[in-house]
Structure formats: structure tokens, C-alpha cells
Computed example of a mutant assay.
Amino acid sequence: MSRRKSPDSPLFPLELPVPDFSFELAARRDGFWPIAGADEAGRGPLAGPVVAAAVILDPDLIPAGLNDSKLLSAEQREVLFKEIMATATVSIASSSATHIDTTDILKASLDAMRRAIDGLAIAARFALIDGRDVPQGLSCHAKAIVKGDSRSASIAAASIVAKVTRDRMMARADATFPLYGFATHVGYATEKHRTAIDSHGPCSLHRLTFRPFRTA
């Protein structure tokens, strides 16, 4: 049931621990199917959107090497992103910096996950959510899993899709706002980014309710 498709790449050592499909199989035994994993990327940066992804994996074509996106290199994430997009049902949603400032980062993240899950072309009957909170208003049953991106294959896949998508969005933003170096740090509070903010002030992508803007 959880046979993994081997990648055409030596990037993924066989000894690397990977999330499994046990949470998905347990939900299926309880009568729920299809099952989506959901995760977000970009809760911590000073700039840019928070991006959420929902993924329904094909149990017979689970890409080998799925893991928490933070544990993978950019090259590994790109390989897995292509495999996930080719073999799974995927939906992506985002909340802008303005949305984050209007509500807060947790509410904006959960809202993006809700929209990603509800936007799946195949309706999920159950969703596995990374973290401690389940988005309100979901159209399906759901379970929150702490550190789910390193425990559930579906959530790991969602974490990869969200991270790659957000990184690409920030790379495009770099062309519009070249003074900040978004393609390099993707909005995180690096020294280079903070120096650019000090020199040029914030742009429309910055989250003005975050420090250092809040204390300026």
C-alpha cells in the first residue's frame, strides 16, 4: 500500500529516516478516503506571503525521500517537487503580508491551509495538518500532528510544495524589489535583509506588525 517510487537521483541516501504513511492508513481504516496532508511555509520571515499546500498522495506512487522540507537541500526539494506534482493531487494557497498584518500569522497560516485543502480538485474526506491547530471551517474531518512534516508522508509532501512555491514567489519578487535581496534570503531576517530595511525602509511585501517594524 505504501510502496515508494524510487527517484532517478542519488540525492537521497537510503539510510535517511523518512516519514511514513501510517497516519493515512489509520484514517483509511476508519473509513476516510481520500486523505490530504497540509503544511505551510513562511511563518517566520519579515516579508512575503505565507504559502500553504495540500497534497493527496497516490499510495502506489509515493516519492522516495519525502521529508520535512527544512531537512532537505534546495536540489532535493526541486526533485521531489516535480515528482509530487506529477503523481499527486495538489492545491496551493497563500496569505499576503497585508492579510498577515490584518489578522496575525497563525490565523493567516491556518486560513491559507483551509483554502488549499478546500481547493483540491479531488475533495479530501480527511486532512492531516502540521502543527497543533486545525483550520476552522474545513469541509472535511481533520487531525493536527505536531512535527507532522517529519512523521506523515502526505504532510512532508505538502511542506515541500509550499516551500518550493514560496521560494519561487520570492525570487520573482526580487525582480520587482531588487534593493532587498529577496532571492537570497526569501524574506528572512538575515543581516543583509535588515541592513536593506535600515537603508531603504520597508516595501509593500514587508510584514509591518513584525519586529523590527513594530518597534521602529
Rank of each mutant, 00 (worst) to 15 (best):
S2G: 12
R3W: 07
R3Y: 08
R4D: 00
S6Q: 07
S9Y: 01
P13N: 02
E15P: 00
L16D: 01
D20R: 06
S22P: 00
F23A: 14
A27W: 10
A27D: 00
F32A: 08
I35H: 00
A36E: 02
G37R: 09
D39M: 02
A41N: 06
G44P: 09
P45S: 13
L46M: 06
A47L: 08
V50Y: 00
V50K: 14
V51K: 00
V51T: 15
V51F: 10
A52N: 11
A53K: 07
A54Q: 04
V55D: 05
P59A: 02
D60A: 11
L61W: 03
L61G: 03
A64T: 12
N67I: 06
S69H: 12
L71W: 02
L71M: 10
S73M: 08
A74N: 13
R77Y: 03
V79K: 03
L80N: 10
L80R: 03
E83N: 00
E83D: 07
I84P: 01
A86S: 15
A86M: 08
T87D: 01
T87S: 12
T87P: 00
V90F: 06
I92M: 09
A93W: 11
S95M: 10
S95H: 02
S96H: 01
A97Y: 05
I100S: 08
I100G: 04
T102E: 15
T103S: 15
T103W: 13
L106K: 09
L106C: 00
A108D: 04
A108V: 06
A108C: 04
S109C: 02
L110Y: 00
D111M: 12
A112I: 10
A112D: 09
A112Q: 08
M113K: 02
R114A: 10
I117Y: 01
I122W: 03
A124N: 03
F126Y: 15
I129P: 05
I129M: 11
D130P: 01
V134F: 03
P135D: 12
P135N: 12
P135W: 04
Q136F: 04
Q136T: 03
G137P: 04
G137Q: 12
A142E: 02
I145M: 09
I145V: 14
I145S: 09
D149H: 08
R151A: 14
S152D: 05
A153Y: 01
A153N: 04
I155A: 07
I155V: 10
A162P: 00
R166I: 14
D167A: 12
M169F: 07
A171T: 11
A173V: 11
F177M: 02
L179H: 12
L179S: 09
F182E: 11
G187Y: 01
E191W: 09
T195V: 15
A196L: 09
D198I: 04
S199Q: 15
H200G: 06
G201M: 13
P202S: 14
S204M: 08
R207N: 02
R207Q: 09
T209E: 03
R211I: 13
F213A: 12
F213C: 11
A216F: 06
